[in-house]
Design a protein around this nucleic acid. Structure first.
Ligand SMILES: [Mn+2]
Ligand SMILES: [Mn+2]
Ligand SMILES: [Mn+2]
Ligand SMILES: [Mn+2]
Lengths: 220, 220
DNA sequence: CTTTTATTTTAAGTTAACTTAACTTTGTGA
DNA sequence: TCACAAAGTTAAGTTAACTTAAAATAAAAG
C-alpha cells in the first residue's frame, strides 16, 4: 500500500528544491509542520531506500528514483485538482485541500484515465505544470510577479500561488483567474499597492496580493 | 484528520451485523485480515469512544452514534463506486478496490456534490443501497439468489455480491448486469449448475456463481 | 579568529496499530 | 455433564511516526 507520510515528505522535498537542486531539512519541517527531529528520522529512512542522498548536516538531494517518485505524487495531486475543478466543478480555492488527501489514493490506472478525460492537461487550476506520465514537465510561459509591473503595463495571468484559500477566494471575487488580462493603472510608492484594471473594473490590490500572482507581460 | 483504520473497522462491523444486530469479533478479524488480538484492541478503543457496545467475550453492537458513523463510511464508499463507474467509466469490477481507499478521502462537501452529480442515486454499481445523508437506507426490491429459481423461472438482476473481482469480470462477460433478465432453462441436479438464457445467449453457470447473483422473480 | 546563533542530530519517550504466544472463557457434542 | 475446540483476551514485543530536551555541528557576525 501507498505510504502517505513518505509520499508527503518526498513531494515536499521536490517542491522545495532550490536552484542547486538542494533542500534544507529545516524548510521541510516547517512545510510539514513537524519537528526537525521527525525530519531527520524520515530522511534516514528515505536515504536507506535510495530515494534521497543524505549525509548528516548536509542539504538533501533527490536521487533520480526519488525524483520520479516525487514527480508522480505531484502529478497525482495536480490531476486530482484539475479533475475536481473541471469535472466536479469545485472552486479553485477548494481543490488543493481535497487533493492533498486524494493524491494518495487512486491507482495509476485511475489517474491516467482522469488524465485522458481531461485531454492530457498541462496545467492545474492554479497554473502549475502537471508532470506527464514519462516525467516530463510542461514548459511554462515566461512570467513575472504582477508586483514587478510598471504603471501602464499589462499582463496575462499565468499562475497564482495557492498559498492560502482566502487569497484564492478573493482573487476570484475581483475577477483574477488564469488567462485574465490585468492592466496596472497606478502604483503607490509608499506601500507598493496598485490600482489595477481587471475586466473593466478597477481594484486596489496590496503588494502581498500582487506578489503572488504571476503574469506574462503583453502589449497594450 | 480521518482515522482510516477506525473507519475500516466500523464499516466492517456495520456490514457484518447479523439479524440480531450483533457481530462476532472473529468475523471482523477475518474480513480485515488481522489477528483476533488486534480486533480486541480496537474494540476497546471504539467502546471508549462510545461507538460500539462492548463487553469482554460478548458479541459487538453498534451504538446509534457508531452506526451513523459507519453508515457514513458505507455511503462514501458507494458514492465513490458509482461515481467512478458512471462519471469516470471504470468497469464495475474495478470500482470496489479504488473506493476502498477513496472512501477515507474527500470532504463531506465533495461527497455531497458527487451525490448531486449522480442525481441522488439509491444503489451502487453492484446493487447495494447507498445510505442517504440523513442515514436512511433506500429500500431494495425483494430478491432471491438466482440459485433458488426453478426451471423455467425468470428473474431481473437486482444485486450481485462483489466478493471477487474475477467473478464480476466474468459476469460482465456473459452479460449479467443490473436489471438484466435471466431465464433458467435447465438445472442439473448432480451439481446444481444451471443453463440460463441471458439476452438471447445460453450459458452454463455454476451453483457458486448463481449463489452470488440476486434477482427479482418476474413472469414469463 | 572567536563567539554567538541557527540548524541538525541524538537520545529517550509516546502513541496507534499491529504481531505471536499463552491463557481464559464459552459453547458443543458425545 | 464434561471434555475439548473455538473464540476471545492478555501479555509482551515490534514498527512507524511522531514528540521534547540536550548535544553537536555549521554558519554568521563581530
Ligand atoms: Mn498529501
Ligand atoms: Mn495547484
Ligand atoms: Mn477502506
Ligand atoms: Mn459495491
Amino acid at each position: 500500500m501507498r505510504n502517505i507520510s513518505k509520499e508527503d515528505y518526498l513531494s515536499a522535498i521536490y517542491k522545495n528544491i532550490d536552484s542547486n537542486s538542494k533542500v534544507k531539512a529545516n524548510v521541510i519541517a516547517e512545510k510539514m509542520d513537524v519537528s526537525n527531529a521527525a525530519v531527520t528520522d524520515m530522511l534516514k529512512k528515505l536515504a536507506k531506500e535510495s530515494l534521497i542522498i543524505y549525509e548528516p548536516y548536509k542539504t538533501i538531494k533527490l536521487t533520480p528514483t526519488g525524483e520520479s517518485y516525487a514527480k508522480n505524487i505531484v502529478r497525482r495531486h495536480r490531476i486530482w485538482e484539475l479533475f475536481l475543478h473541471q469535472i466536479v466543478g469545485l472552486p479553485w480555492d477548494k481543490v488543493h485541500d481535497e487533493a492533498e488527501n486524494l493524491e494518495h489514493s487512486g491507482s495509476d490506472e485511475l489517474i491516467n484515465r482522469m488524465e485522458v478525460m481531461l485531454n492530457f492537461p498541462e496545467f492545474d487550476p492554479h497554473g502549475d505544470p502537471i508532470p506527464a506520465i514519462d516525467g516530463s514537465i510542461p514548459k511554462q510561459r515566461d512570467s513575472v510577479s504582477l508586483s514587478k509591473l510598471k504603471e501602464k503595463e499589462c499582463g496575462l495571468v499565468v499562475r497564482v500561488n495557492d498559498f492560502s484559500q482566502n487569497f484564492l477566494v478573493y482573487l476570484a471575487q475581483i475577477g483574477i483567474e488564469l488567462k485574465q488580462k490585468i492592466e496596472v493603472k497606478e502604483i503607490r510608492s509608499f506601500d507598493n499597492s496598485m490600482l489595477v484594471l481587471i475586466a473593466g473594473n478597477e481594484f486596489n490590490i496590496s503588494k502581498t496580493l500582487a506578489d503572488n500572482v504571476f503574469v506574462e507581460i503583453v502589449k497594450n
